[in-house]
């Protein structure tokens, strides 16, 4: 317990060491999350659009065939 406390204390510099690591982890985690979210959204939108277009084309083809 004493060892953990000593480790967290960082020789009296805890107020400088831990915020440095926290800031790095927070900024890099947020950037990663935003990048992942952006990719997922774009991929989802594209597959939805391609699905719609495929469906419309298939539907359109069917209509066209029934007319002839």
């Amino acid at each position: 317990m004493d060892e953990i406390g000593k480790f967290l204390e960082m020789g009296g510099y805890a107020g400088f060491v831990w915020p440095s690591y926290a800031a790095v982890l927070a900024v890099l985690a947020v950037l990663l999350w935003l990048s992942l979210r952006g990719l997922r959204a774009a991929e989802g939108e594209l597959s939805r659009l391609e699905g719609d277009a495929g469906g419309a084309r298939r539907g359109g083809g069917h209509e066209g065939a029934s007319e002839t």
Partner: peptide, 13 residues
């Protein structure tokens, strides 16, 4: 002292 540990994130950044 222990502040040197900031180096391990500061220098790579």
């Amino acid at each position: 002292g222990e502040t040197v540990r900031i180096m391990y994130v500061h220098v790579p950044a």
